[in-house]
């Protein structure tokens, strides 16, 4: 999310009552989602996840949702909250107004209540070969030294390495909503994350997967994925840069080579030449 999505006019003060409207689904008895409402007392700093926990602990223990870290790092609690895909733990209820509507992530299957099936997201992620690919197999199998990379080279892809795999971008993407074949913003941005890594030489291998109508060319630059991303990964930018890489090659001309090993315990080779501290006298 690029902007603060606060709604001070519609917000409810601490101590007020929040209406939590959840689209529920029980695979044992439901054929479609059914809405259910609860009233929750707003506490200081309460997030949507806190409100769901308040319901689960005090009103309805059968409510199902997925979460882990509660601090916007693990990406488990992606939900459709007041019309946008968001992380429940990262969304304060006082930004949302007196009624908070929560539904499972769009463009995914719901397993139960607010628990989405992310298996397809992970399959798409694996499809783009999300790891360093090099030709010097011996060095990869038995590394002897480090591969050199400058801070400037790191900056070319580090933004995309913050991906949580929370799947919010897929929930926001209009192409994913109609095409199950489309790899989606998450996987394509991760493909670029490795293509732009100076240690990588795998563009050719990845092109077999991403250079297709259901690959990068399924993206029509609606930009919703980047608006939904809770970590500022900007998948739309990654996909466009991946398209450019398919035309003109990766940002680096040749994969980084191994660097000269520094003496053990030194950060620069010159450090070994400097005079050492005298031995302790006590």
């Amino acid at each position: 999310m690029a902007e603060i999505t606060g709604n001070p006019e519609g917000s409810v003060p601490e101590g007020g009552i929040l209406t939590l409207r959840v689209a529920r689904y029980d695979p044992e008895r439901d054929r479609a989602a059914r809405p259910q409402e609860w009233k929750v007392k707003i506490l200081p700093g309460m997030t949507v996840l806190d409100a769901l926990f308040a319901v689960k602990e005090e009103q309805d223990g059968s409510l199902a949702f997925r979460c882990s870290c509660r601090m916007g790092v693990c990406g488990s609690c992606g939900m459709f909250i007041n019309g946008k895909p968001r992380l429940a733990c990262n969304t304060q209820v006082n930004e949302l107004g007196p009624v908070v509507e929560v539904a499972p992530l769009p463009n995914h299957d719901a397993i139960k209540d607010l628990v989405p099936d992310l298996a397809l997201t992970f399959r798409r992620h694996r499809a783009v070969l999300p790891y360093i690919i090099r030709n010097d197999v011996a060095e990869m199998e038995s590394p002897t030294r480090e591969f050199g990379q400058t801070p400037e080279e790191l900056a070319r892809y580090v933004q995309f390495s913050y991906c949580l795999k929370c799947s919010l971008c897929l929930a926001a993407c209009p192409t994913v909503s109609t095409s199950e074949q489309f790899l989606g913003p998450q996987a394509l941005a991760q493909a670029y994350r490795f293509v732009a890594d100076t240690r990588d030489a795998g563009l050719g291998e990845r092109a077999g997967v991403v250079d297709a109508s259901h690959g990068v060319f399924g993206c029509h630059l609606a930009g919703a994925c980047s608006e939904a991303c809770p970590k500022g990964v900007d998948p739309a930018l990654g996909i466009q840069l991946l398209k450019r890489s398919l035309f003109v090659g990766p940002p680096h001309r040749a994969p980084a080579q191994v660097v000269s090993a520094f003496p053990e315990g030194y950060r620069t080779p010159e450090a070994a030449e400097r005079p050492k501290a005298p031995p302790p006298s006590v």
């Binding site: 690029a2 603060i4 892809y157 630059l221 991303c229 990964v233 900007d234 466009q240 840069l241 450019r244």
Partner: peptide
Amino acid sequence: LLFGHLGCALGRPEYPVYPYPVALH
């Protein structure tokens, strides 16, 4: 869209520091 698809006028990747940068902005 053509400019965008070729990665032009979108800027460069940045460290994601809040408020997060969005290329389309």
